[in-house]
Every structure is written in C-alpha cells, then in structure tokens.
C-alpha cells in the first residue's frame, strides 16, 4: 500500500521549479521531491514514498516511543510470558 522508508536529507535544491533533495538511505543516495515538506532542513529524516517525502520524522516523539517500550521492562512479576514458552 505504501512502502515508504526513512532517509536523511543531505542536500536541497530546485529542479524544474520543484523543491528537491538528495536523501541518504544508510549509504544509498536518491533524489527526492521535498514539495510536501517545505520546512525540512538538511540533517533531518523524512519518510519517503515513491520519490516524495511525505513527512519529517519527529525525533523527540521517536525517542518517546522507545522510552515507553523500555518502561515495559519494569514488569517483573512474570518471568517469561507463556506466549514465548
């Protein structure tokens, strides 16, 4: 439906009047249209789908999600959930 991947913006330029950028996917560099994320800055991560950046990834909320999962570790009353046995 919407195979999209996070990538880091490393360059921003204009092409045919469109705001474009170069995005680094852990070593693979691709050209991406940035028209839908006009506020994006070099160094930020975007979600890219079919050549278009569709949102700027919110690092603060990503860290919040990860920290919530780390809180779950505090559930000590059960050793290993029977789901895994």
């Amino acid at each position: 439906m919407c195979l999209a991947v996070p990538g880091k913006v490393i360059d921003i330029f204009k092409e045919n009047g469109l705001s474009m950028g170069r995005v680094d996917y852990s070593g693979t560099i691709a050209k991406v249209c940035l028209e839908y994320v006009p506020e994006i800055q070099i160094g930020q991560y975007a979600i890219v789908h079919a050549g278009f950046a569709i949102t700027i990834l919110n690092e603060e909320l990503a860290e919040y999600t990860l920290s919530t999962w780390e809180q779950y570790d505090k559930l000590k009353d059960k050793q290993s959930p029977d789901i895994l046995s």
């Binding site: 996070p6 880091k8 852990s26 991560y45 990834l57 690092e59 990503a62 860290e63 999600t65 990860l66 999962w69 780390e70 779950y72 570790d73 559930l75 009353d77 059960k78 290993s80 959930p81 029977d82 789901i83 895994l84």
Partner: peptide, 22 residues
Amino acid sequence: MKYIDEFRNPIHAINILKQIDA
C-alpha cells in the same frame, strides 16, 4: 537515530509481549 534498527529490537518485543500477557 536512523529510525529502523531501533524499532526492531527484540528486547522491546519481549517487553511488549509481557504487557500483552498481563
């Protein structure tokens, strides 16, 4: 943060499964 490996960590999987089980 590169937004991929951090969200594939099996430790988190076990923690969430504990929550579901509870």
